[in-house]
Amino acid sequence: TRVETATETAWISLVTALHLVLGLNAVLGLLLLRWQFPAHYRRLRHALW
């Protein structure tokens, strides 16, 4: 059971790390998009709101 718990903890930390990386990538991607295409982003925002 100790090995199972260790594997579980490893999986949880792995999934958490993946989520963090994906979240960071999403934020960075959005920031890059805003920086690269400000006009396009503004138009998109007007369409959404």
Rank of each mutant, 00 (worst) to 15 (best):
T1W: 03
T1I: 13
T1C: 11
T1H: 13
T1A: 11
T1E: 11
T1V: 14
T1Q: 15
R2Y: 12
R2L: 14
R2P: 11
R2W: 14
R2M: 15
V3D: 10
V3Y: 07
V3W: 04
E4V: 14
E4F: 12
E4K: 08
E4Y: 12
E4S: 10
E4I: 14
T5W: 00
T5E: 10
T5G: 07
T5M: 04
T5V: 03
T5R: 01
A6E: 07
A6Q: 10
A6V: 07
A6P: 07
A6F: 02
A6C: 11
A6K: 11
A6S: 15
T7D: 01
T7V: 14
T7R: 08
E8W: 06
E8D: 12
E8N: 04
E8Q: 02
E8C: 02
E8M: 05
E8A: 05
E8P: 09
T9G: 13
T9W: 14
T9N: 01
T9F: 10
T9L: 10
T9P: 15
T9E: 09
A10Y: 03
A10E: 15
A10P: 01
A10F: 07
A10W: 12
A10S: 10
A10K: 05
A10L: 08
W11S: 05
W11M: 06
W11G: 05
W11L: 06
W11I: 12
W11T: 03
W11D: 03
W11N: 07
I12A: 06
I12L: 09
I12R: 07
I12T: 05
S13Q: 08
S13Y: 11
S13I: 14
S13N: 05
S13M: 13
S13V: 14
S13D: 05
L14K: 03
L14I: 08
L14G: 03
V15E: 08
V15C: 02
V15I: 12
V15G: 01
T16C: 11
T16N: 04
T16I: 10
T16E: 05
T16G: 05
T16P: 03
T16V: 14
T16Q: 07
A17E: 02
A17V: 10
A17T: 06
A17L: 13
A17K: 00
A17N: 04
A17C: 14
L18D: 00
L18V: 08
L18K: 01
L18Y: 00
L18G: 01
L18W: 01
H19F: 13
H19L: 10
H19R: 10
L20P: 01
L20H: 09
L20G: 02
L20Q: 03
L20A: 11
L20R: 02
L20W: 00
V21R: 01
V21Y: 02
V21G: 14
V21Q: 02
V21K: 04
V21H: 07
V21C: 15
V21D: 03
V21P: 00
L22K: 01
L22F: 06
L22I: 14
L22T: 08
L22Q: 10
L22H: 02
G23D: 10
G23F: 13
G23P: 00
G23Y: 11
L24V: 12
L24C: 12
L24N: 04
L24W: 07
L24M: 14
L24H: 02
N25I: 03
N25S: 10
N25F: 04
N25R: 04
N25Y: 08
A26M: 11
A26P: 05
A26E: 04
A26L: 14
A26Y: 08
A26N: 00
A26S: 07
A26C: 14
A26F: 13
A26V: 14
V27F: 11
V27N: 07
V27D: 06
V27P: 05
V27K: 00
V27M: 09
V27T: 06
L28W: 07
L28I: 05
L28V: 07
L28T: 09
G29H: 02
G29A: 14
G29T: 15
G29F: 15
G29N: 08
G29W: 15
G29S: 13
G29P: 04
G29Q: 05
G29K: 03
G29C: 15
L30G: 09
L30W: 03
L30V: 11
L30A: 12
L30R: 02
L30M: 11
L31M: 14
L31I: 11
L31K: 03
L31P: 10
L31W: 11
L31N: 05
L31R: 06
L31H: 02
L31D: 03
L31C: 15
L32Y: 11
L32A: 03
L32H: 01
L32M: 11
L32Q: 06
L32T: 01
L32C: 08
L32V: 13
L33M: 12
L33C: 14
L33E: 01
L33G: 05
L33A: 04
L33P: 03
R34G: 08
R34M: 11
R34T: 01
R34W: 09
W35Y: 15
W35M: 15
W35A: 14
Q36L: 12
Q36G: 13
Q36K: 11
Q36W: 14
Q36F: 02
Q36I: 12
Q36V: 14
Q36H: 15
Q36R: 15
F37G: 01
F37T: 00
F37N: 04
F37M: 00
F37L: 06
F37Y: 13
P38G: 10
P38K: 08
P38W: 02
A39I: 10
A39S: 13
A39G: 13
A39K: 07
A39T: 12
A39Y: 11
A39R: 14
A39H: 14
H40D: 00
H40G: 11
H40C: 15
H40A: 13
H40F: 11
Y41R: 02
Y41M: 14
Y41G: 02
Y41K: 03
Y41T: 10
Y41L: 11
Y41E: 01
Y41N: 05
R42F: 07
R42H: 11
R42Q: 12
R42N: 12
R42S: 11
R42T: 12
R43T: 13
R43S: 08
R43E: 05
R43K: 13
R43I: 09
R43C: 00
R43F: 04
L44F: 12
L44R: 00
L44I: 13
L44V: 11
L44D: 07
L44C: 06
L44N: 02
L44E: 00
R45F: 01
R45A: 06
R45C: 05
R45D: 00
R45V: 10
R45M: 09
R45G: 06
H46R: 10
H46G: 06
H46D: 09
H46Y: 08
H46C: 07
H46K: 07
A47M: 12
A47C: 07
A47D: 00
A47G: 00
A47E: 04
A47S: 12
L48E: 03
L48T: 03
L48A: 13
L48M: 11
L48G: 08
W49G: 01
W49C: 09
W49L: 06
W49A: 02
W49I: 02
W49H: 00
W49R: 02
W49T: 00
